[in-house]
Amino acid sequence: MSVFGPESAALVVAAAIAATAFWRGLGVFLAQRLDTKGAVFRWFSFASFAVLAGLLARLLILPSGELATVGLEVRLGAAVIGVAAFYLSRRNLLIGVASGTLSFALAAGALG
């Protein structure tokens, strides 16, 4: 056991780096051929928003691992509180994130 851990762990991290860098590189490669006025470029902007929204759905509604141990009502309830605080504070991100996360921690502590 060193500062990097067992060899198998190092191999796994290297594989994760490569798997992620692949998508970034592919994006750069395609972007070289695009200009910002074109339809393809616009489609990809919207696809990015949709993928991030899909990721959000996964994190909030279909989480894996530790987050799944907390009930759906706690996750959604905390998210609603965060959104409400965000709009009540005239779109202040800090107040929204702090309210949502704090209520999540309190609910997870009280119910868990």
């Binding site: 987050l67 965060g82 959104v83 991100l93 929204g96 999540f104 868990g112």
Partner: peptide
């Protein structure tokens, strides 16, 4: 434990508000 869980949640909450 609740704090550890909240740290995992903070990212989802931030992404939600950014979107």
């Amino acid at each position: 434990k609740p704090l550890g869980l909240a740290l995992l949640f903070i990212n989802a909450c931030f992404l939600l508000l950014l979107l």
